[in-house]
C-alpha cells in the first residue's frame, strides 16, 4: 500500500511537471511531427498574426511586442531555427489577411515605410529600420540552436512618428515572417542540397531532406543487416 501511494504521488508530480506554461506575448512553438510550427497569439486577426499589440497605432506611439520561440520537438537532438522575412508582391506573395480589402502591396509598402521597427534578441539587434525596408527585402537570420525545451525571445519596438499625416489614418500593413526549423541528431551535420521541388530561399533550402543523408542511412542499414546475418550464420555453423 505504501509503495502504491508513492507511485501515485510520483505520477501526480510527473503530470505537474509536463503542464505547459505559456510565455507572455506571442509564441512560436516548434512541435515537430505533424504539427510543425504552432503560433499562439491573442491577435484578433488570428494565430498567424504575432503582432497582437501593434493595432490601432497613433502618431507618437512607441509600442512593444514580445515573441518567444521554443523548440518542443522530441524527435531530434536539437533544431536550428531561422527567421526569414518575405517581401510581398502581387503575384508570388500577395496579401493574405483582411488588409487586402483596403490596401494594395504598393499602398501597404508606403504605409509601412512610415513606421520604424527594432527587433532585439537579447542584446543582439536583429532589425532596426523602417518597416518598409525590413519587409521589402528577403533576409534570413539564424535565431539559434535549441535542444528540446530551449527557447529564445524577440523584443519588438514599433515607433510611429508624431508627424504621421491624416492620410495614414485607418491603414494597414502585413509583414510576413517565415520561421524555418532544421532538425538534427547528434553527430556530423550535413548541409542541405538542392532537392527538386524544394523552395530555394538563397542560403537555405527548405521543404526537403538531404539526399546524401538518405543514401548514407541506406548503406549503413545494408551493412548492419548483412553483418547480423553473417554472424548468425557463422555461429550456427560452429554449433553443428
Amino acid at each position: 500500500m505504501k509503495r502504491k501511494l508513492i507511485y501515485i504521488l510520483l505520477l501526480s508530480l510527473a503530470f505537474l511537471g509536463v503542464t505547459d506554461v505559456y510565455a507572455e506575448g506571442s509564441e512560436v512553438r516548434f512541435e515537430g511531427g505533424a504539427e510543425n510550427f504552432v503560433f499562439i497569439s491573442e491577435s484578433e486577426e488570428g494565430d498567424t498574426d504575432l503582432f497582437s499589440n501593434l493595432k490601432n497605432v497613433m502618431p507618437g506611439d512607441v509600442l512593444s511586442e514580445q515573441i518567444t520561440v521554443t523548440n518542443f520537438a522530441s524527435e531530434y537532438d536539437y533544431v536550428k531555427i531561422y527567421l526569414k522575412t518575405e517581401p510581398h508582391n502581387e503575384t508570388n506573395n500577395p496579401l493574405e489577411t483582411d488588409i487586402k480589402e483596403t490596401e494594395t502591396v504598393a499602398s501597404m509598402a508606403d504605409f509601412l515605410a512610415q513606421l520604424n521597427m527594432k527587433v532585439l534578441q537579447g542584446d543582439r539587434v536583429v532589425f532596426d529600420n523602417s518597416l518598409g525596408q525590413i519587409e521589402g527585402q528577403e533576409k534570413t537570420i539564424l535565431l539559434g540552436q535549441f535542444a528540446k525545451g530551449e527557447s529564445t525571445g524577440l523584443d519588438l519596438t514599433l515607433s510611429v512618428p508624431m508627424e504621421l499625416g491624416n492620410e495614414y489614418m485607418h491603414r494597414g500593413g502585413e509583414v510576413d515572417w517565415v520561421f524555418v526549423a532544421e532538425g538534427f541528431m547528434n553527430g556530423e551535420e550535413d548541409e542541405p542540397e538542392d532537392v527538386p521541388g524544394a523552395a530555394d530561399t538563397g542560403a537555405l533550402t527548405i521543404f526537403g531532406a538531404s539526399a546524401r543523408g538518405a543514401a548514407i542511412t541506406t548503406v549503413a542499414a545494408v551493412i548492419v543487416i548483412f553483418s547480423i546475418v553473417g554472424i548468425a550464420y557463422l555461429i550456427r555453423r560452429k554449433n553443428r
Binding site: F51, F111, G172, D190, V224
Partner: peptide, 28 residues
C-alpha cells in the same frame, strides 16, 4: 563493423520545415 557504423551515427539525415506568420499592423 556493426559497432563502428552505429557509433559513427550514420543516420545523420535531418528534417527541415517552415511556417509563415502573417503579422498585421493597423493604424487608428
Amino acid at each position: 563493423a556493426v559497432i563502428v557504423m552505429v557509433a559513427m551515427g550514420a543516420t545523420s539525415a535531418y528534417f527541415a520545415t517552415s511556417e509563415k506568420a502573417h503579422n498585421v499592423i493597423t493604424s487608428s
